[in-house]
Design a protein around this nucleic acid. Sequence first.
DNA 1: CGGTATCCCAGATGATACTG
DNA 2: CAGTATCATCTGGGATACCG
Lengths: 119, 119
Amino acid sequence: MQDFIHDKRVYYSPIEFAMAYIGGTWKIPVIRALANGPLRYGDLKNAIPHITDKMLNTQLRDLEKKRMLTRTTFREKPPRVEYTLTERAIQSMPAIEALEAYGRKLMDWEVEGIVEKGD
Amino acid sequence: MQDFIHDKRVYYSPIEFAMAYIGGTWKIPVIRALANGPLRYGDLKNAIPHITDKMLNTQLRDLEKKRMLTRTTFREKPPRVEYTLTERAIQSMPAIEALEAYGRKLMDWEVEGIVEKGD
DNA sequence: CGGTATCCCAGATGATACTG
DNA sequence: CAGTATCATCTGGGATACCG
């Protein structure tokens, strides 16, 4: 395919472009945590093991900029902030599930020590 | 899920583990280039735009170590070396295709400037 | 509660040149 | 043909501390 330019960056394939949206260590965990409905910052942090404030913040800002989620502030006492997935993010689910299925297969192979034809 | 330890590294999910096998800029391009059958180093380099010798080598060694492909040397004149995908790599195709489909969707959305509900 | 601000490092990637 | 070697750079992520 031809190169695709977006936001001053060059992508050599649709896959590379998709990776900009769901790649990295934390984007998929964040998307999955929000899959069943909006969550607040604190809930999100509790739902994602090992994530630090810095990484959660960085990822939330980046995902918002990429229009993968929206940030809604409710003027309550105390103020409440909710994060909600957009259609863009919801559409990534099939790819995420395919990745997970493949990851499970790889893990099973490692654990069972299976050696296939060609190894 | 519980943490998964492999080769002295900790993985928090099957997805993270899958990414170790097909993540990064060059692993998927290499796997796809070999999808229709074995290729030699030079053919591989020609088939993958923009890749440098260093990155092609690094990825071939890494993929070989992860048993995603095999390296076969034919004692001919001049010597010939062929790279062939293993079953592990072939099984990654569904995930790769799902990623590509999602990437194309994202590209279309960017180009068409479509704004979905929630944006 | 819901974040920001710094500083820092390792590993991934790139540029360039060289070799059996 | 099929690689290695070196050096430079860029960026994700961690540690730590602070703020309205």
